[in-house]
Nucleic acid binder design. Structure first.
Lengths: 305, 305
DNA sequence: CTTCGAGCATAAGCCATCCTTGGAGTGATC
DNA sequence: GATCACTCCAAGGATGGCTTATGCTCGAAG
């Protein structure tokens, strides 16, 4: 008796509906692309599973019992819901819909991200992106906690504290380098390049906490400790302070690009200090179409700076 | 590629919902009464069939992607519709709902049918019966055409025109017999029984067309042709006409029972002329619970007249 | 009245699917 | 560091579904 405890499947309803509309098993089989015995067995199985006849074979024609009518009546709604669900998922899978939650650090979100999102929007108008700003340690945390789908992060070459990204999908985007910012009238303003040590005696203006740590580390590698007079994670402010002659700064090239260099000069730092900018995502998220598409546009945006 | 063209089944949604609510494959398996690999495979199949990941395995916990969320959102409605359908069909199958369409000839619908339907209503309050009146040839026709589920019919013993009921389910209910109706002051009114020939010279009042044919046949069997002065299929009218002394009649016992015998006497006809009263239904309809239950109540009502 | 065609039921066989078991790897917890 | 819980993977076995083939009934046409 426990064997009859089977449950109605969508397939049963599809077959039943076909039988109800066509009026015969054979026609239903043709409509469904299977043979008549398949339909016959399917209906028999459904009838035993619901425990009551659903169809009356009256001579030539096939009629529904009351239970059959009830089932057909429900079937339309159920199958409609099912196709609606398939539609919606297909829309997301086909990039006609769906939202990807992106987290980026500030200098990324002002350069790479806008270009990438513009391209994404052009290619797949249905997709939506939500953007949040966070510096790397936090952004990776957000990713791992499931609060975002895609994180832009960076890592300085030779950095002491190497975050563990082994369990993530890492897509290198581009390699940024630090530039020194000096006031226009500074002696080094016209230099081709500058060694960090040449700025040892200057007052410094530091960027975000992480950049600041990086700055100190680089300076100490060159044998001095920078005298930091100001610290702000607002890049235009840094540029403004340098332009006002209050000190020098080093910033990532990417950060400088989005700020008008009013009264300052950006001089290449030699030897170069580089940071690798990457996009991170969870392995399970990488094949998600919206994520993959966004990632692809970020990579393309990075190729032509 | 054509292989990925599979379609979402209710089973997939059940599993997905269980995973979404429990948060793990193992727990979902326990809830569904199967093993964890079964859940895992089921989800993998669903993901390939919709073409996009639905779940993110993030460390310990299991989260839904956007497509997964969409599917779960639809799933609740779809599965609710499915259980509603099962409920309704089960209600019909379990005699808590459902309507049976009954056709009966007049003398049946005034005696057998009310008793049977009262018992049915008492036993299964949810069931409903629609009753229509039709004489046997027509009622069987209605049955065959699918316009009713159950037909009460009768057949006179030794009748010339034997309808073909071989393809129907025939349930004998009772055997009725004809009685002669004579005015109270008629010489035969006190007789124990009467032979049809004894009424050869009387004016006759005939019933329905079919009863009339039967009457003529019986009389001719006894060697005379009845002089029919009145014909009506209204039994009380027949009784009234006999009571008024306008003639005699023969009626089925069952028909007389539901009419007050005002001024008439019912005398047993000997030799007896009997008719078998049966319930008819289509073979496919017989196992339908509402039909079976109605049939059963009719049989029980027939056993105690 | 017989023949023919259409449709359904059933049986047997094949194939896909599904589920289970057993084992390995991994992250979190004590 | 050991344990527990969870997942994935692989292989085996059972179940179910579909197909072909066959027989039957019914209705229409010759």
């Amino acid at each position: 008796m426990a064997y009859a405890r089977r449950v109605i499947e969508a397939r049963h309803l599809r077959v039943l509906r076909a039988v109800a509309t066509t009026g015969s098993f054979s026609a239903a089989g043709r409509e469904l692309g299977c043979t008549q015995p398949a339909v016959s067995q399917q209906m028999k199985a459904l009838e035993t599973s619901v425990g009551t006849p659903l169809l009356v074979r009256a001579g030539r024609e096939m009629r529904l019992t009351q239970a059959g009518e009830a089932l057909v009546r429900h079937a339309s709604g159920i199958l409609a819901g099912l196709t609606a669900a398939e539609e919606e998922v297909a829309a997301i899978a086909g990039l006609r819909a769906g939202r990807v939650r992106l987290v980026s650090f500030p200098s990324g979100s002002s350069t790479l991200v806008p270009a990438a999102l513009a391209a994404l929007r052009a290619a797949h108008p249905g997709t939506r992106v939500s953007l949040e700003e966070a510096e790397p340690p936090r952004s990776v945390e957000l990713l791992r906690e499931g609060d975002c789908d895609l994180a832009l992060a960076f890592r300085y070459e030779g950095a002491a504290t190497a975050e563990d990204w082994d369990d993530l999908v890492v897509r290198p985007l581009l390699t940024d380098r630090l530039v020194a910012l000096v006031p226009e009238r500074h002696p080094l303003a016209r230099a081709e390049s500058v060694a960090i040590g040449e700025l040892a005696g200057e007052p410094w203006i530091a960027g975000c906490p992480r950049c600041r740590g990086q700055l100190v580390q680089v300076c100490e590698g060159a044998g001095f400790t920078p005298r930091i007079d100001f610290a702000t994670d607002d890049y235009p402010a840094v540029v403004g302070l340098v332009g006002a002659g209050l000190g020098v700064a080093v910033l990532p090239q990417l950060a400088v690009e989005s700020v008008r260099p009013r009264g300052v000069r950006a001089v290449r730092l030699e030897p170069a200090v580089r940071r690798k900018i990457v996009a991170l995502t969870l392995p399970d998220l990488a094949p998600v179409p919206t994520v993959a598409a966004t990632l692809e546009q970020l990579a393309r945006a990075a190729r032509r700076p």
